[in-house]
Amino acid sequence: MRLLSIDTSNLVLSVAVVEEERVLAEMTTNQQKNHSIRLMDCVSELLDTTGTLPEQLSGLGVANGPGSYTGVRIGVASAKSMAWSLNIPVIGISSLQVVAMNALGFPGMIVPLFDARRGQVYTGCYRTDGMESVRACENEKIILLEEWLPHLRDQAQGEAILFLGEDVRIHKEAIVQALGEQAKFASPAANHPRAAHIGYLAMKKLQDGTNAHELVPEYLQLAEAEAKWLAQKQEGLVKE
């Protein structure tokens, strides 16, 4: 079985073709170029490189957020449309979990994060499950970093906490200030999402057979206009 996997949810673009036990090819760039322009050319190139015809694919995996709204949508719209065209299942994998996979085997808490502006981060907390996968210790969320860090300190009970993601460098100072030596940071390569991880995780979930129509992004927050409208509705200021 061959799977194509895609991540365009943040600045990094990553595409891979995997089989059950092997990664056949992977392309990861951090050029911050337009994913809309580059994604399908990369997919086409990777299929050619691995000698794969689209109809030979058994499934697709895609990072479905959180992340940049537009980036997430490009990945999800492309993956679900391709899966629908080929009549194969598509699996959405958390963009945070993909990054957490880079820390397989880390003996402590793994905390991937993406900047979400105004002091907030999209984040979650993972622990390694042997050397194969990571499991979430709590729900992914958007939260103020200044609230998240003390919460992590309470949860970790002295264990090391590894922060992962391209945006960690933006918040490194605040993290060190709050957690001191308990906070750990990784080599640059571990901060990038790798589509090969998505392919591997999606392969394991393939039997779940997600229908292409049902795949939607996980933004972790409402569009601003919707949030405002709901708040007004709760106050009885507007009617349906």
Partner: peptide, 19 residues
């Protein structure tokens, strides 16, 4: 632009998948 990108991504994906 955000709206256009969804249609364009979908069209490209179908085009590539079906040749």
């Amino acid at each position: 632009v955000g709206a256009l990108l969804v249609g364009v991504a979908a069209a490209k994906a179908v085009s590539l998948a079906r040749g």
